[in-house]
Design a protein around this nucleic acid. Structure first.
Lengths: 149, 149
DNA sequence: CTCCATTTCGACCGTGAAAGTCAAGATGGG
DNA sequence: CCCATCTTGACTTTCACGGTCGAAATGGAG
């Protein structure tokens, strides 16, 4: 029940690009430093994310990466699925590519696994990167604190 | 976000023992056949489950395994945790052994991962093997069907 | 046009865990 | 005593994860 570190890196990279929110692209090295990601590995990851249509790139000097869509329109779930594959505790309850198991139809755990998958989906598919940023700005305000009357 | 096949085998083995519900032990070979588990591997798994206090064994001819507690008192979650380790998308939100990440305190994803973990726990810790059996007996009745007025 | 910073592409690789397998011994019933 | 069964622990094999690396293509600036 764990996400791969590659997936977590991908999410953090997209978060960094969400924060940047500018027409100017952000360089790989910059993203890597802000989010503590090994540069060479990040190259691979961003290449993959580009293939998935999440980010765009500009080459050459002053090049770098930008989001392909605004943060409000990217959910955490879709990134996770793209990088790590279907979100499901076992293959037979994957919504995209369900795989028949040995107990066709009378699997004792089918309903249960389905509920687990649904519970996860309910969280990850309803959270966008914009939500995440908002949540963090609120938290920061709380932390600085004491400015309300 | 997947459970290991070892863990799934463990759950199915305990389910088989729950169905058996008798003072007479169930043999490894029997469990293996009913639940489609490689016998040699099941030996390892049952040994581990015994160490966790989930099952008891009786040696010799007419030996085998029985549940150490009634099915109402074993949740799926505790078995999963015992076999696969903490249930958490990332280590920092594990409730049993949280591991500090690089962003002590200001991790942008901390709250999010926590909600994911909670969603999973809500399902797996509230479901016992007795619940699972009841669910399946209901389903079977539905399938046979047409007996209600 | 040339130089340099940057992305791009594909190959490469070491480690550790997952998923089993196996042999030999201990134990208990008949 | 004999046989069926659990017990223990070592062993193996395969593969995905988590990266690295080198060289080429590209675009902006001067």
């Amino acid at each position: 029940m764990a996400v791969s570190s590659k997936c977590y890196y991908a999410l953090r990279a997209i978060y960094a690009l969400s924060e940047h929110a500018s027409a100017e692209p952000l360089k790989i090295a910059e993203i890597a430093e802000r989010q503590q990601i090994p540069v060479r590995f990040l190259e691979v990851i961003l290449g993959q994310l580009k293939g998935g249509g999440f980010v765009r790139s500009r080459r050459g000097a002053e090049g770098g990466y930008t989001l392909a869509r605004p943060p409000e329109q990217i959910t955490i779930g879709e990134v996770m699925r793209y990088v790590d594959g279907p979100i499901a505790p076992v293959d037979c309850v994957s919504q995209s590519r369900p795989k028949e198991c040995d107990f066709h139809g009378h699997c004792h755990f089918f309903g249960f696994w389905g509920r687990v998958r649904q519970a996860i989906s309910d969280v990850v598919d309803r959270t966008t990167f914009a939500d995440l940023m908002r949540e963090n700005s609120l938290k920061h305000r709380e932390y600085v604190g004491d400015w309300t009357i």
